[in-house]
Design a protein around this nucleic acid. Sequence first.
DNA 1: AATGAATGAGCATTCATTCAT
DNA 2: TATGAATGAATGCTCATTCAT
Lengths: 205, 205, 205, 205
Amino acid sequence: MPKPVRNGASARTVVIDKREAILRAATKVFAVNGYFNSKVSDIAGEAGIADGTVYLYFKSKDEILHSIFDRAMAEFIAEGRKEISEIDGPEAKLHRIAELHLGRLGADRELAIVFQVELRGSTKFMQEFSAAGFGEYLDIIRTTIADGQKSGDFRTDIKPVVAAKILYGALDEMVTNWVLSNKAYPLLPMAGEVMKIFLGGITKR
Amino acid sequence: MPKPVRNGASARTVVIDKREAILRAATKVFAVNGYFNSKVSDIAGEAGIADGTVYLYFKSKDEILHSIFDRAMAEFIAEGRKEISEIDGPEAKLHRIAELHLGRLGADRELAIVFQVELRGSTKFMQEFSAAGFGEYLDIIRTTIADGQKSGDFRTDIKPVVAAKILYGALDEMVTNWVLSNKAYPLLPMAGEVMKIFLGGITKR
Amino acid sequence: MPKPVRNGASARTVVIDKREAILRAATKVFAVNGYFNSKVSDIAGEAGIADGTVYLYFKSKDEILHSIFDRAMAEFIAEGRKEISEIDGPEAKLHRIAELHLGRLGADRELAIVFQVELRGSTKFMQEFSAAGFGEYLDIIRTTIADGQKSGDFRTDIKPVVAAKILYGALDEMVTNWVLSNKAYPLLPMAGEVMKIFLGGITKR
Amino acid sequence: MPKPVRNGASARTVVIDKREAILRAATKVFAVNGYFNSKVSDIAGEAGIADGTVYLYFKSKDEILHSIFDRAMAEFIAEGRKEISEIDGPEAKLHRIAELHLGRLGADRELAIVFQVELRGSTKFMQEFSAAGFGEYLDIIRTTIADGQKSGDFRTDIKPVVAAKILYGALDEMVTNWVLSNKAYPLLPMAGEVMKIFLGGITKR
DNA sequence: AATGAATGAGCATTCATTCAT
DNA sequence: TATGAATGAATGCTCATTCAT
């Protein structure tokens, strides 16, 4: 039942905006205080709405955290797939993944904090996380490496799964260090550093 | 409720034992439920003591988590230093570090869970963690790599700090994956896999 | 959402209909969940209107409960007065009252539940209830009994007020038992059972 | 592990006392405000303890209400059984039951309020109530009436179940009226009034 | 040292009511 | 009239910590 709309924005837009506002506010609040130390009223306050309103868009505090992850991970994966499909050569593809990974999180410190720190606050969540998007992400890397082996670019004496975890772990560590560091340095350039070593390790000589 | 003492253990020994018992119990409880979902009474119950007794050995629940880390990290570093001092060659040293890292955590799944998951539940804690032993651990790796560059074994176009983080990140990811995996596989052998790639990446050709 | 109107009903009629619909819906909802466990939105949903619309017809949730009682009690009393005025003899009059009481509630289980159970959820409400229609109802019974004493039909060594309460209590208990019983039996026939004993107790021998 | 006790009271006694204190406080608070309008902190305050302490003795607010009923009903039934076993003749037995019923509740107005009003605030509770002690109580009355029929004292053209409900309903109504009345009159004497009519109605002529 | 009963601050969530449209 | 999104006050319950014994 669409109500008359004054400007170009639809009623649906308003809803999306408020949902977005809550997610943004929650990301910020979680980043600063941690999930367990954040109160729902903090999130509502940050979003400029009443406490109860949060529950019109999310079922629980927990669901907010999940949504932050879901939304970001979906974008992450979609963007990743799209970009590497437009690039030729496994080395260039991996390089691009590393740039996307560090570029995206490096551009949104709060999101990075939630990803690196809060998301891991519980084994339960980590396992759901692992079962969901994370596995898919790791798979993109693994496949790219396997393709590189078939094309003769990469050493065949290494297991793609393991190599994928190593690359992910290296990138992840860059982010965690960056997040926890007090010094403000750009995260994106670390992609080159990581790839220099990683490609050195997997490329055929 | 003084327990009968078998050997000539002093009162001090009893204290140490009880402190140890609490830390062991807490590691187990934290591993299963997560830090925030664990009650002090759960820990006390697991340790077979009264709730209040916990506070004779630790100032707060938070301090217990810190102590778990402190104790493990101290052992970790001491053992690491000792072992690599007995080994010659930067490659062999790094290899030994990887083995120690995965060997130790692979032998104590509960400790591994607390390290990989619970320890990261708060930015605040992560920063303290970072400031403390973790930096020292990373430094051992960094120094070893720098030594390898001086000795001509490793490429000099990479920054030791970055390479150290990459190695740590790769090892860390192995542990996290192992912890979150439902399949029971040995963690230690992954050390070889990681080193195959990492050394390939930093060794001069 | 104006519904198509079949007959020449005025806007006023629509209002009355909606008010009725809310009361009917509320009776049903209260009967199932109890007053305190019923949400205004449940009532609105049952009535097929928006939550806010309820407040165009009733000032508060509390007022709805009052209105259910008021409306039913007014009907109850009016019908009672009318019927007993058409009947001769105090015994027959009391018998008719019992039949009306059990007949009416026996025909509307939901209303009966609200009367027997929900209406008594608060001392405050019970006192208002008592002060209002209930006293009037009891008075009809009392007067009939007093008349029977004057006419020489009933024993004069009993107080009409007490006897009236006893009859009301007996009928009320029949309803409560019927409401709470899982077995489906007709309530009306219990009127005869009650009167057999009650009249036996108050009739001159 | 009995701790040294100063006076004759055991540790167990202390617990019982506090549990009792909570039940007494809750009965008072429920009587004044009604169950749903009473806060757990009100009960704790009335009992002179901290809010959390309530939960050391009761699982929930709901359980407190149940316990009030359970305890009182158990006493009620035990006392009833004992007394009527010591009395001869069905008329005298029924008379004693009426006296006990009105005497007990007439001596504890708060308990009476909870019994008459709060206990009926929810269909669910009423059904549990019905299934539990209440049925047993009604059974005592029913059996006594049936015995009176066998002994030739009571009319045999009435069903004992129905007669039992009528007596209970009459007594119950006396209590409810007394509870809701603003005038302070003694409840116990009403027993005689009720029995005068009830026995008149069921006794053989 | 050890106990565990008692404390009370803290918080997610609900829902009656309002009001802009 | 009607709507239903938004509000925000209200509260049962938990659990880290204390302390009398």
